[in-house]
């Protein structure tokens, strides 16, 4: 069979590429499908040349799915990006791309690319300046420098989930949000004191078998709709927060654990920790005749002074 001229191959290649772009994003093409798309049907040789052509231009990307070889189409903008890179940059870029949302540690990058340190940092700098990649910080390894494609958001393992801001557990955010949730639950579960006739004993509870207690879903929707936060929270996150409130003894699960009810704040005042011994730092040493004893105890003195 006559040799197919290179120009024709190129033509075929762009033809196939155009066809591939029609497919929904992220669609994986099998060899068979690509062969079908190639003009001059089922000519293995032509198809392979076309595929090689496409791969060389990085217009498609080879991958494996199970044991099968599959291809993914690369968008035009992507190709533009890659075109502007030199070979080193390109290699680094592809490694970073492969790491996807997990990101890749510079040390791993170096081991994989086998590049010199200075070259690599130079390349990374260029890529970063061009906004192709970005450096992120991991909750797990706060000291490591990790790179990721610019357009991606870090995965939960890296960012630590919605509760982390700047790789630190965001205390204030958690507290604020849980307080707001507590207020919401309380408003639904503790009857408001009636202002009209204050002489009557204020009703403190809803009747038994009351079913107006908010469920997880209701609380979740309320948080969603209340514009309390811009952080995207899943229902599971809200549940984690509710669990914490339960452990704090501020709310409890009712109706077989499906709904929540606010509890009244209990007094933690008790005889032990209120007496000087309950909060004494040298309690273990204290004994009659010892260096610390009831007769020379300054905490007792203080405590008795306050009472006057």
């Amino acid at each position: 069979m006559a040799e197919v001229p290179h120009a024709t191959i190129q033509e075929f290649a762009s033809d196939v590429y155009e066809q591939c772009l029609q497919a929904p994003g992220g669609y994986l093409f099998t060899i068979q499908e690509l062969t079908d798309m190639t003009p001059g049907k089922s000519n293995i040789e032509v198809t392979s040349k076309v595929l090689n052509e496409l791969l060389r231009d990085r217009r498609i990307q080879a991958m494996t799915q199970g044991t099968q070889n599959v291809f993914r189409v690369v968008s035009k903008e992507m190709i533009e990006k890659v075109k502007n890179m030199n070979a080193d940059e390109e290699m680094l870029y592809s490694y970073i791309q492969d790491a996807a949302r997990e990101g890749i540690w510079t040390k791993t990058l170096k081991a994989k690319s086998n590049m010199h340190n200075t070259t690599m940092s130079k390349c990374l700098k260029t890529l970063e300046n061009k906004r192709y990649i970005k450096a992120i910080q991991s909750v797990k390894y706060p000291t490591r420098k990790i790179y990721m494609l610019y357009e991606l958001t870090p995965s939960i393992e890296v960012s630590g989930g919605p509760w982390f801001t700047d790789r630190e557990l965001d205390h204030e955010f958690i507290n604020e949000l849980s307080t707001a949730m507590l207020k919401f639950i309380a408003s639904k579960t503790i009857p408001r004191a009636r202002a009209k006739d204050s002489t009557a004993p204020a009703a403190t509870t809803y009747p038994p078998n009351f079913t107006g207690y908010p469920t997880l879903n209701q609380i979740y929707l309320w948080v969603k709709n209340s514009n309390l936060t811009e952080v995207d929270l899943a229902e599971a996150d809200i549940k984690a927060l509710l669990d914490v409130l339960v452990y704090d003894g501020k709310i409890e699960r009712v109706v077989g654990g499906t709904a929540y009810r606010a509890l009244r704040k209990h007094e933690s005042v008790n005889g032990f920790t209120e007496s000087p011994c309950g909060r004494c730092p040298v309690f273990q040493l204290c004994r009659e005749g010892g260096p610390v004893s009831a007769s020379n105890c300054k905490y007792f003195e203080e405590w008795l002074e306050v009472g006057l």
Binding site: A200, P201, A203, T204, T205, Y206, P207, N209, T211, G212
Partner: peptide
């Protein structure tokens, strides 16, 4: 005095989910 010691459930919840919980 027992009168008024238990609040009535708010109206809307009463009609909506009265039967959701069966003991």
């Amino acid at each position: 005095e027992l009168e008024g010691s238990i609040a009535l459930p708010p109206k809307e919840t009463k009609t909506k989910k009265k039967r959701s919980y069966d003991s």
